[in-house]
Amino acid sequence: MIKLQVIGNLGRDAVVNNVNGRNVINFSVAHTERFKDSTGEQKERTVWVDCAYWSDKTAIAPYLKKGTQVYVEGGPDVRVYQNQEGKQGASLSLRVQNVQLLGSKSGSGNESTPPNGGNMAGSISNGDPVEDDLPF
């Protein structure tokens, strides 16, 4: 089993689609890594991850807005295709099993209340009920 975990900000608002009678929430997450190169100069590298959350639990979609910080986990999903020049290509995306809202970028204008009544660390996962297992 391969498990991928990503923490980052949504690059655009999530979109709910219906594919062959099943709901899928599509969104992209960007993670920016800061590092120093061999000369000691500060650099940034941003990695974009396309995410597909196949679930009937679409109530979270309105809260997946551009700029919102999220934690997503799931498995890799490889799609093979043929481009316009006839060459074969492949894309890697994340088939989401769990998504957690971590917060929003300051000044993003996201005034909505998350589905768990204001706790931005809410979690929605496939198949498992959301439970609070904290001892206090």
Rank of each mutant, 00 (worst) to 15 (best):
N23R: 10
R95M: 04
T113N: 09
G74A: 03
Q88S: 14
T46A: 07
W54H: 10
G127H: 01
F35T: 09
T68I: 06
G40L: 04
K57Y: 04
S93V: 02
N119C: 03
Q97F: 00
P76D: 10
N126C: 08
P135N: 09
V72M: 04
K57L: 10
S108K: 00
N116E: 10
N20W: 00
L101T: 09
W48T: 09
E131H: 05
G103S: 12
S104Y: 03
A90E: 11
S104A: 13
N9S: 11
L92S: 05
K36F: 08
A30S: 14
Y63S: 10
Y81F: 13
E85V: 03
R79H: 12
F136Q: 10
S112F: 02
N110V: 12
G74S: 04
V47D: 14
L134G: 14
R45K: 15
T68D: 12
R12G: 08
Y53V: 03
G118Q: 05
L92G: 00
T68G: 12
D128T: 13
Q100R: 14
P135D: 12
N26T: 13
I7L: 05
D37S: 06
W48H: 07
T68M: 13
Y63W: 01
N98F: 00
G8W: 01
Q84K: 15
K87T: 11
M1C: 06
T68H: 08
